[in-house]
Design a protein around this nucleic acid. Sequence first.
DNA 1: AGTAGGATAATCT
DNA 2: GATTATCCTACTG
Length: 205
Amino acid sequence: MGIRARRTPLRTVLARPAPEAARGLLGCLVTAGDVTVRLTEVEAYGGVGADPASHAHRGRTPRNGIMFGPPGYAYVYFVFGMHWCLNVVVEPAGQAAAVLVRAGEVVDGLDTARLRRGAAVPTRDLARGPARLTTALGIDKSADGTSLVDGSGPLTLAPPTAPVDAIASGPRVGVVGGADTPWRFWLAGDPTVSAYRPHVARRPR
DNA sequence: AGTAGGATAATCT
DNA sequence: GATTATCCTACTG
């Protein structure tokens, strides 16, 4: 037997339609400094006018501009006044699509990840959630717009080191529009996949 | 175990 | 001024 390497180059996978690119990202490794995370949960987001849940749905803005460029770049945004989320830009340049990285397993740099997340945090929870993952990796605004595939930025994306088994899918977390689109993908049975929480509308105060 | 509410600020209308 | 691709704490059972 032996490990079968991915036959398709990563860049080719990322250029595919968002849901396919999302599947291809599962099992991939993201490295920042001495911390490496194996991706176990992602969500696909489509382009202008195609996906009401996407930041690009209403067109280009200063924030989402990177989504309109070539695949393999990081789209990092700040949400809820305190959290950073990491996306990988996918589909060819001109098509504004991205894949939100929602969770992963810390496979290297456990000590650093625990320092950032807190000593009391269980190992499986270190990167179990979009903002938890960016915290574990030390990702913030400085990673926005950098390449994950050419070695020029703080982040590095690498293909899976082992075959990826069963992939499950379902509705995305925390979105209002497009709530019925099953564009959330995760490794079936993996303990580091985040708990699904349906969106709850909050009333004005 | 499950859920409700608050924190907190960039972004866009 | 409203909204938000979340997380943590506190509370109920």
